[in-house]
Design a protein around this nucleic acid. Structure first.
Lengths: 227, 227
DNA sequence: TGGTTCAGTGAACATGCGTACACTGAAAGT
DNA sequence: ACTTTCAGTGTACGCATGTTCACTGAACCA
């Protein structure tokens, strides 16, 4: 077990404001900043270990406030977890919006490129989602599951706009979209595992593109194949 | 936090042996039985909560032995986790062997049926795998990842035996197999979430079969589609 | 038969935890 | 200028945890 002097740990708050003499912003702003500092600290600490094994005291220690102050922002660690889930899903959804905005000539390699880029940029958010998706805290699991289902239907309606997809059964669209989401998530984990290593990355990207392509080909011939 | 009288909890050991007056089997056998009781108890307790938040004392309490006796069997909870991972992967691999042994006329619905059956029969093993695959304990994660990679190559060689797959690039086979494994695992989680509810189960099975079929169709046309 | 091994015991410990409570002092409201 | 609000402080508590150590007694072996 790690042993730390609670008083001496670096204060994220003064670090963030860059002004140790304080007195910045209105009271609401300052509160929001502390709240965000708690979320950021938690996310940072979640690099090793799951939410279930992260203690309230660790988080406040990292931020540089006293344990009891935590309750000014969240009723429990579980609540903080749900907030983290929402924050993470916001970046995931932003990614999808990004992909929708600029359609490239090759939708597949374009999508994968965006995925790689976003995972790199928001590593800890994605890590959190993948780790806690089936993790120990029920509320968080539910929150992620709900958002992920929503994401699935968004992708399904996107798919519907492709040429030749118009007359597809919505249910079939949904199942294809879900398969893609499942594949995407396993790619995300592979990306996180491979780290910044450039050769491994190329390999992962290659596999991802081929997998999506395989699905795409399946979709093209879906209706012309005997059941 | 749950509060329990350590002395009064039901003893799994005497329950399992069915002989409270003891004296069954050689010393080695008895030791192995306790070890297994620890694994079973842990698996049972893991129904709610992840490995990272499961304490040594909880497990021994459930088994009915004193906390310190734990160390006669495992050096730490992490080690128990790795043992659980191995045990769970053994049932997963058994499933694959099962599927290989009896090829049906429709490989897809046959495979899905076997999957459903096995998940039902070894619910906690599958739950453990899915939960801890990206969970908090690094050693366990590694153990599962290794075994899962092995399972991927097994499936790839299985795929190679299908008609028309002979001349496939091994790397392409591997990527298709991995996609299937990813899909399978997300199906497993769906099965666990849906529980015994028969209508939801039918829905999940239906989606699973269509997803596998989609991949299969993609594979059929893989080489005759322009890149 | 007698000595050795060793799975399980039981008491004790230091530590980290969540949370209750009374507090302070600066910002916000009047 | 005053009162009120409230984010953060500091202390203190009871509790569960991992691990230590010396122990017991049945199974084992010679």
């Amino acid at each position: 077990m790690r042993k730390v002097d609670e008083k001496k740990s670096a204060s994220t708050l003064t670090f963030m404001t860059g002004d140790a003499s304080g007195s910045l912003g209105t009271r609401q702003e300052r509160k929001l900043r502390t709240r965000q500092a708690l979320l950021d600290a938690a996310l940072r600490l979640l690099a090793d270990g799951s939410l279930a094994s992260l203690s309230l005291r660790e988080v406040t220690r990292e931020v540089g406030i006293v344990p009891t102050a935590f309750y000014r922002h969240f009723a429990s660690m579980d609540e903080l977890g749900v907030a983290l889930a929402e924050e993470s899903m916001r970046t995931l959804r932003a990614m999808l919006r990004d992909a929708r905005r600029k359609p490239t000539d090759d939708a597949i390699s374009g999508s994968v490129a965006i995925l790689v880029d976003q995972v790199r940029k928001h590593e800890s958010h994605f890590q959190f989602l993948v780790r806690e998706r089936y993790g120990g805290v029920a509320d968080v699991r539910r929150a992620i599951a709900t958002e992920l289902r929503l994401l699935g239907s968004e992708l399904a309606t996107d798919l519907a706009r492709f040429p030749g997809m118009a007359e597809w059964d919505p249910d079939d669209l949904r199942m294809a979209a879900d398969l893609m989401v499942a594949g995407m998530l396993s790619i995300v984990m592979a990306l996180l595992e491979v780290g910044p290593h450039p050769q491994g990355l190329a390999e992962v990207v290659d596999v991802a593109e081929r997998q999506l392509r395989l699905i795409a080909i399946g979709m093209v011939h879906w209706h012309s194949t005997p059941r």
